[in-house]
Each structure stands twice: as C-alpha cells, then as structure tokens.
Amino acid sequence: MKRKTLALAVLATVAVAGAAEARDQIRIVGSSTVYPFATTVAEQFGKTTKFKTPVIESTGSGGGLKLFCSGVGVEHPDITNASRAIKKSEVERCHKNGVTDITEIKIGYDGIVLANSKAAPKMKITRQQLFMALAKDVPAGEGKLQPNPYKMWSDVDPSLPKTRIEVLGPPPTSGTRDAFAELALEGGCKKIGWIKAMKKQDKKKYKAICHSIREDGAYVEAGENDVLIVRKLEANPEAFGVFGFSFLDQNADKVQGSLVDGVAPEFENIASGKYPVSRPLFFYVKKAHAGTIPGIAGYIKEFTSEKAWGPDGYLTDKGLIPMPDAERMKYRKDGAGLNNNIMM
C-alpha cells in the first residue's frame, strides 16, 4: 500500500512539473492534405538544425483551426495547416481568444482528381456532367429541381461510358470533399443559367443546390484513407475515386486520372492553373509564439526555401504543385517578417 501511494505521488509530481515547464518543440496541427508536406519539412528541419523535430498532428483543416484559435500559450499549437483559407468566423474566434497576429503562408497547390482503374478506359468529363452525375438534386427544366435520377454515366450524357455511377470519395469532414464540391460541382453547377442567377438572390439555396452530394449510394463515403480508395479502384474497374493529386502521382501504374473539361490532371496543368479542380494549401503561424517557442522562424525558413517548395524542391517529389515565382517571393517575405497578412 505504501509503495502504491509513493508511486502515485511521484507520478503526480512529475506530471505537474512537466506541464509547467516551457515547451521546446514546435507543435503543428491541421489538414491531412498538407500533412505529408509539413512532415517532410519538419523532418528535414529537425535533421539539419539543432532544434527538435516539430510534432505534427493530422486533425483536418477545421479541427486544426479550432485548436489554433483557442488561445495563446504553450498548451496551444503554434502552427496549423489548412487545405482552404481561414474563414472569417475563425479569424473572429482567434481574435476573441487573444490570437491577434496570424501570418498566412500559402505553400502551393493541390489538384483533386477523379480517377479509375487502369483496366477501364480513361474518362473525359466536364464539370457540368460531373455535377449532374453527383449532385443530390439536379435541374429538370427552368427553375425546377428533381432528385438525381441518373443511374448510369451514359444517362447523364451519351458520350460517357455505359456503366453504373459509383464514386468513392472523402466524407463531409474532409477539406478535400469541401474543395471537390466547391471547385468541381459548383464549377459545373453555375454553368446552368438559372442556378447562376440564383447566386445573387438566394445565396444559401444556391450553395445547397451546388454543394449537396447525392446520398442514394452512387457516391460512397470511403473515409479519409486515400490508400484504401486506390485499392478499391483496383478491385473494381467500374468505380471512380476522388482524392488528391499526390496519390495519383504515387500510384500511376494502378489508376488514371480522368480529363476534366478536357484537361488531364498532370503536374504542369495544375501548376499553370489549366486543370480546373485545384486548390491552394496554407499554413498559419501564431506570431505570439515566435518569441517563446524556439525554431518557429527556422521552420518557416525551411518551408519557404527554394529547395523545399521551389519547382525542383523536395516537396514537388511528394506531390506539391509549386506556386509561380512572384507568389513564392511574397509569401517568403511574409513568413520571414511574420507579417499579419489576414485582412478581415
């Protein structure tokens, strides 16, 4: 009994002492899309400097910003990764909790691809066809909607293959899903005249029409695990999958990306902005932590160096699509000065 009490007491003291101690390691949270890039930079940073390797958690963009904006102090993360820009409501939350100076650094682009097995023919699709195939409600004549009746791709457009519509994609919690809905579906949705006109009058309804994905089994939520989607596509040549470009890049012998609006999801096309379904990736830095947590400036410097995010950098090897020179210059400067560059 005595020994037990002693052990508990020792543990409690150690625990409390540890919590009070200052942190000497950068803590990063956020998007699972940025995670492969951030971890690569963190490892490089840890191995080439005297600082400890930053700890990176993959929490999703929204979850990361929530943690990031919860306050200033060692118990809160220093940096959050995001596969979308910070929202106004999130900035307000940050300000309310004392996180006033935030530096936004755009790191590059990521393409979202619609891919299928190599065993099946490559598909050519437009964003409008994609919207018609995957939206929850599709227009039936001027101003009218009907629940999505299409079962086969060829029902949407005779030029598409005569196979059942089956798309595996990320769940609603994922930033990839948000971006896919915004870029691919809304991109196709607003080509329909009367829906586009609605954007000005009833923005909420417009968004509901354009961003809702059908729930009748044609779109299968396959979890956040993109490797799993690639494997399922291999097993089922009739199915399509939605995931990030880096997974297509690593598995080019098993799956192929569909042409969207006639553009193939290739490195050059995404970098030049020709491929329509691509989005910027970011990370956000808490300026208040730069003085207390060692290594933040060094981490930013490593991330924004040419050998990391440049056109020949090691991040392109991991699937990051680099930004044009001028943009890289701008964000490198913002990062070096930790400028508060969020205008809201």
Partner: peptide, 17 residues
Amino acid sequence: IGMVAFIVDIPGGPLDP
C-alpha cells in the same frame, strides 16, 4: 489526446511527445 501524430524524435521520458 494527440498521440496520433508525426513524431521523429525518440521519446526520452513519459512527458515527451
């Protein structure tokens, strides 16, 4: 509790990530 994370350094004690 944040133990699902990318951690390179070998932990030196029960308080290290």
